[in-house]
Nucleic acid binder design. Structure first.
Lengths: 117, 117
DNA sequence: CCCATCGATAACCCGATGATTATGAACGCG
DNA sequence: CGCGTTCATAATCATCGGGTTATCGATGGG
């Protein structure tokens, strides 16, 4: 695609991270995993596999994508890997929504405080 | 995927619309088109093709997906079709962010006012 | 030490999707 | 009417992405 189109507002790697984030969030299974991590806290791959309805390798791959999108972090403990949701991961998307949502309607102004990220 | 996993919080077609929305937003070209519509207002397919960097049929198809995701509306005027960004289209995604962002950190609480949608 | 468990990777299948070119349908204008 | 413009659709292709099974490395427990 034409880069000159987006360079006006979304500068540099901001759009890249948005791309990765939106892609990561665009899959239902991945969102479900993320939602579970948010609600229940740190979980092992094994536990996530048990509730995900897909195979363990698939869970690992989904977690890998979430991790590359900075939406989760991994902690190794023995032979288990514990994943947890990363709070600040959504920030670029929230900012994107703030920018375009704000131009759309004025109900997003509260989000602008997220500049600190 | 296993439906029982998401039924706790995201009920019914809410997750379906989130899926369509996130998928629609997960493509850079589509986001760029949407951003342009938000910034510049109603535009014809011709005008959007000129700035998109992809072929006209591709622009039509992207706009079709954005439309099915309720992110744009189309207005026919003679042989031209004018597309514009649809304000409330982002609402389900914003709500999703509000729910999980709220669980994540407390900085999102202001978003809960969006229940009106 | 052996074996079971856990998680990541590989090989593979197949449907979805982004992109193209070609075509067709509707409309405005001279 | 006839022609160019505008947009949507069809046919096609290549790639991406989600899913599986099989496998392998690492780790802990008996």
């Amino acid at each position: 695609m034409n880069a000159s189109m987006t360079d006006h507002i979304l500068k540099g790697d901001r759009s890249a991270s948005c791309d990765e984030l939106f892609k990561a969030l665009s899959d239902g299974t991945r969102r479900a995993l993320l939602e579970y991590l948010v609600r229940e806290g740190e979980q092992s791959v094994h536990a996530l596999t048990a509730i995900s309805g897909v195979s363990q390798p698939m869970v690992s791959r989904h977690l890998g994508k979430l991790k590359r999108a900075s939406l989760v972090t991994a902690r190794r403990a023995g032979r288990e890997t514990y994943y947890s949701a990363r709070a600040k991961g959504l920030a670029p998307v929230v900012q994107w929504m703030a920018v375009y949502g704000a131009l759309w309607s004025q109900r997003f102004t509260a989000l602008e405080e997220l500049d600190a990220y």
